[in-house]
C-alpha cells in the first residue's frame, strides 16, 4: 500500500507541475503588456523598461517560471495591477468564504443524497423510489442557479425566511454565519445531492441483491444491519469517488452561487479579475483552484484505503 500511495503522490506532484506550467504560459499568452499596463499608457519607454525589470519580465521564461513558482510556494503571488494589494491578501480574504460554502454544500449534498439513495434502494419499485428518483432527475436537469434566483425572490424577498444576500463570518457570529450560508449552500449542493443519490442507489441495489447478503439474511442478520452495515458501507466507496470528481463542478457552481447571493468569495475575485484583466490575480486564482482540486483528489484516494480494506492489500481499485 505504501508503494501505491507513494506512486499517487508522485503522480499528483507531476500533474501539479504540468498544470502550473500551463497556467504560467497561458497567462503570458494573454494579449497586452503587463509592464505597459502598470506604468500607464503614456509612460516613456525608460519607465516601462524599469517596470519591466522590476517585474522580472526581461529575464528568460524559464527563469521567470522558476522565480514565480519559488514565490508561489511561500504564498507570494505578486501584487494586483488594479489595486496594488498583495494577491495573497486578496486570496486570504476570499478563500475562507468559498471553502465554508463548499464544505456546507457538500455536507448537504451527502446527507440529502445518501438519505434519498438509501430510500430508493430499500423501497425498490414502490413510491418512495419514484419520489427519490424524481428528485434526482429534477435536480440534475433544472439549472440550480435559476432555482437560486427564484429562491431569493420567494424565500428571501417575499417570505423573508432567509437573507437575500450577504456574508457573515461564522467565526464571529456562529449562528448568523451558518444562517446566511444556508440558502446558497442548499442551492449549490442540490445537483451534487442528485449525483450522490444515483450512485448510492445503484451501488446499494447491487449490494443488497448480492448472494452474500442473502446468506447473511438467511443466517439471521437483521434488515437494518444489512442496509446500514453492509449496503451503506459498500456504497461509501463509490460515493467517495464521486465526491472527489464532483469538486470541479462544485468550484464552478460556487462561482455562480457567489454571484447570485453576492458572497465575497474566490468566485467573485475570479470574475472581477477576468473582467478587469488583472493578470497576477487571474494567475494566482487559477493556480490555487487547480492545486486545491489536485490535492483533494489525492486525499480522496487516500481515503479509499481507510474505507475499503481490500485496497490496503492490493493497492488497486478493481
Amino acid at each position: 500500500m505504501a508503494r501505491y500511495l507513494f506512486h499517487r503522490l508522485w503522480q499528483s506532484a507531476l500533474t501539479l507541475v504540468l498544470a502550473s506550467i500551463i497556467v504560467f504560459i497561458g497567462v503570458r499568452a494573454l494579449p497586452g503588456d503587463p509592464a505597459l499596463a502598470m506604468a500607464g499608457e503614456e509612460a516613456d519607454p525608460a519607465t516601462v523598461a524599469a517596470v519591466r525589470a522590476e517585474l522580472g519580465l526581461d529575464e528568460s521564461i524559464v527563469v521567470q517560471y522558476l522565480k514565480f513558482m519559488g514565490n508561489a510556494v511561500v504564498g507570494d503571488f505578486g501584487k494586483s495591477i488594479r489595486t496594488g494589494t498583495p494577491v495573497s491578501e486578496m486570496l486570504g480574504a476570499t478563500l475562507p468564504v468559498t471553502i465554508q460554502l463548499a464544505i456546507y454544500a457538500m455536507l448537504i449534498a451527502l446527507l440529502l443524497g445518501l438519505a434519498t439513495g438509501v430510500v430508493a434502494a430499500v423501497f425498490r419499485g414502490r413510491w418512495p423510489e419514484w419520489t427519490a428518483n424524481g428528485f434526482s432527475l429534477f435536480a440534475l436537469s433544472v439549472p440550480t442557479f435559476w432555482l437560486g434566483i427564484l429562491a431569493v425572490l420567494y424565500l428571501s424577498v417575499q417570505l423573508g425566511w432567509f437573507p437575500a444576500s450577504g456574508y457573515v463570518s461564522p467565526f464571529e457570529h456562529p449562528l448568523r454565519g451558518v444562517y446566511y450560508l444556508t440558502l446558497p449552500a442548499l442551492i449549490l449542493g442540490l445537483t451534487h445531492a442528485a449525483v450522490v443519490q444515483r450512485q448510492t442507489r445503484s451501488s446499494m441495489v447491487e449490494t443488497l441483491t448480492a448472494d452474500f447478503v442473502r446468506t447473511a439474511r438467511a443466517k439471521g442478520l437483521g434488515r437494518a444491519a444489512v442496509i446500514f452495515r453492509i449496503g451503506l458501507r459498500n456504497s461509501l466507496i463509490v460515493v467517495t469517488t464521486i465526491v472527489g470528481l464532483q469538486l470541479g463542478g462544485l468550484i464552478a457552481g460556487a462561482v455562480v452561487t457567489e454571484r447570485i447571493f453576492s458572497l465575497p468569495g474566490i468566485g467573485k475575485l475570479t470574475l472581477d479579475s477576468v473582467f478587469t484583466r488583472d493578470y497576477p490575480v487571474i494567475q494566482a486564482v487559477v493556480l490555487v483552484i487547480t492545486a486545491a482540486y489536485i490535492v483533494i483528489n489525492l486525499l480522496v484516494d487516500f481515503l479509499y484505503t481507510v474505507i475499503d480494506p481490500r485496497m490496503r492489500v492490493s493497492g488497486r481499485t478493481s
Partner: peptide
C-alpha cells in the same frame, strides 16, 4: 492534467 482544470477555469482563461 486536463481534469485538474474545472471547465469554468478553462472558460475564464479563454475569456481572458
Amino acid at each position: 492534467v486536463m481534469l485538474a482544470f474545472p471547465f469554468l477555469i478553462v472558460a475564464v482563461g479563454l475569456a481572458a
